[in-house]
Design a protein around this nucleic acid. Sequence first.
DNA 1: AATGAATGAGCCTTCATTCAT
DNA 2: GATGAATGAAGGCTCATTCAT
Lengths: 218, 218, 218, 218
Amino acid sequence: MTTEQQRQKLLEAAGPIFAEKGYEGATVREICDRAGLNVASVNYYFGDKERLYIETVKQAGRRREESAPYPQWAAGTPPETKLHEYVVTMLTRMLRSETAAWQRGLMMREMLRPTKACEELVRDYIRPDFELIHGIIAELVGESVPQHVLNQISFSVVGQCLHYRVAGDVVGMLVGEEELSQHYGLPTLADHITRMTLAAIGVGEPLGSAKPFINSKA
Amino acid sequence: MTTEQQRQKLLEAAGPIFAEKGYEGATVREICDRAGLNVASVNYYFGDKERLYIETVKQAGRRREESAPYPQWAAGTPPETKLHEYVVTMLTRMLRSETAAWQRGLMMREMLRPTKACEELVRDYIRPDFELIHGIIAELVGESVPQHVLNQISFSVVGQCLHYRVAGDVVGMLVGEEELSQHYGLPTLADHITRMTLAAIGVGEPLGSAKPFINSKA
Amino acid sequence: MTTEQQRQKLLEAAGPIFAEKGYEGATVREICDRAGLNVASVNYYFGDKERLYIETVKQAGRRREESAPYPQWAAGTPPETKLHEYVVTMLTRMLRSETAAWQRGLMMREMLRPTKACEELVRDYIRPDFELIHGIIAELVGESVPQHVLNQISFSVVGQCLHYRVAGDVVGMLVGEEELSQHYGLPTLADHITRMTLAAIGVGEPLGSAKPFINSKA
Amino acid sequence: MTTEQQRQKLLEAAGPIFAEKGYEGATVREICDRAGLNVASVNYYFGDKERLYIETVKQAGRRREESAPYPQWAAGTPPETKLHEYVVTMLTRMLRSETAAWQRGLMMREMLRPTKACEELVRDYIRPDFELIHGIIAELVGESVPQHVLNQISFSVVGQCLHYRVAGDVVGMLVGEEELSQHYGLPTLADHITRMTLAAIGVGEPLGSAKPFINSKA
DNA sequence: AATGAATGAGCCTTCATTCAT
DNA sequence: GATGAATGAAGGCTCATTCAT
């Protein structure tokens, strides 16, 4: 079991480094040092640097899902509630900057310019995510809407969330410190995106009305 | 102005290479070779590799704007039309894969993990962009809506567009080749995002109705 | 005697590998793998890589002799016959490319640049060889010839044989595939070297005459 | 021209090291250190270690030929004389242990186990050598003898010479210090091999007669 | 006794950078 | 000004060896 523990140490050390510096920028020496192991460890446990990278990305997907899982909804839960909670989970994954925040960075890199690790990432973590939101949207708009429109609406939801990860720092630069701290907390953004989406598909009140979002938990 | 021309050659050579391989993955030798200059050129004209990188990113913003500029609207142009054309321009910049497509890649890298180049990028290219969409949204929803809501709606528009750049390859993996080729052309996506946004703010018909988008140019 | 068997397995695995790749080129991991033993075996059974090498060379000498021993001649066997059979045996060792052909390679390496293994090799295998041919030559030329001439003639015989091992591949390059296959079989070469030697010491017909060698077995 | 000089320094440093330790055993660090250049020099001037090796072998052939060239014979020089001088030159190359003695070692390595360098070595240096001795033998034995016999006699001459290189150290072990110093000088050996060859082809007196070799220069 | 997990020294090579011209 | 030859630092990786079991 020692072997598995050493592999874990390596993966945990590699995550933040790959996320910050990218594949080329990271060095196996630095990773091994941080893991408290010798330089040969990467080759010994993973074969080579690339294999370590792939495993690290997969681990990122796994951790990301584990630490902010989707709620299990009781039968009869209204799709509006599901949508709201989906967005909350999504934004939780995007915005939290806790110890293991590197997982986002790694996954974004993969989406932006896929490497060998991407295919598995999509299969194991991204597709299930996508099918979840797809199902919720289908519940909301009903049968008459063609598949590709359901897909596009789903992508619109995801895109709005993703934006706060991709352009997170830029958002801060554009709106200033004050507005950022007051109006870009997770609950506020989740309400906004949920209401925007519901209105767009004709379920909720259009934006512009002062009415606060009802299901908000914040 | 030979000096300026040489700098230009270097910037043009560096762009695609940095975009494809990242900062670390790119080598100054390859850049100089492609530019038809000697290995010392980068250091001679830009000081070091990092300075060249920053200049390349700034150049990317400039080129990106020049090659797909926003339309100049006559007074009285309805904001729905403006919104649609804004989205078209935005998606054009996101999706086109012509000769200078590397500009996107470079800018995405900056937004994802800002380097020294990012501040100037925001000031010169991103903020003007943002103010444009902000103005259009303001026209559409009227005076009563607070600033931060206008901003958030604007981000929602941008986010939907950006998604097709960030997760472009993943979208293909999720929906399959066939749907991709039929329903993810630029005009289709522009219609979708415009309608989605208008419906969300109570201006257009909600999605789910079969009615095609009226202003579509495609 | 498990220990002895393991050592044997290691020696047998090491032989061909050292012969093909040389001391530096061979890896203990490959040797242990081929022997079906763990990586630590070499150090465990032989101390280190070098000691294994020396033992392997010695083993090569032993095997080489066993697999192509000199004939036991009945009293009264004419020295011409002995010479011919000596040359046949010698060439057999030089030319055969059967399973254990690596022994030649290893011994040649040692002769070319003696290591610690060489002294024992000479004492146990090479000197007896040499004394054999020396005796045959002495029988042929009689008492009047001084020792050092006998030695030199012996070396000439050995040298002619050795050449087909040392420069075997080069011979092929020089004479071409066709001549090689027709005129460089073992019996042909054995006849040539025997006749050459006999003629040189005034016992046989000089070369150039068409007369085939009488004692030829082929 | 500096470039050429640096390459030369590297070749000269590499020669003895490759000869002594073989391709795998030699390190580019050691070679560069001995040449007084930095570790990157080998890759800079030769591309990689292997290319340096090939060039070093070719250089060995060139130097070996230059430092002990064959005499230019006047028309009418008797073939016996030519043979003797050929053997002298050959042995000179084999036996001298002057500063650049590593050339032999390198060439022997190639003959024993040819690498990529061998083909060029044969073409440029070994084949001309071989054609020379072939011509001399042809002069001596006349027209009636078939090609392959001429070749084999030539190989016998070369083999006798080569033996003192290949098994040089072993010869010393077999005959002892005293005989070695008295009877294995270059002139003595050259006489022996020449007489042996001439007698074998029916031109000279057979060995065993006390008559000294007439053409001896020593 | 025998193993195999783990190591650190050292390998070849690449690269951004410098400096004499 | 502009070059390209030359460099030193550092990179990923391999290997013989060790040591706890």
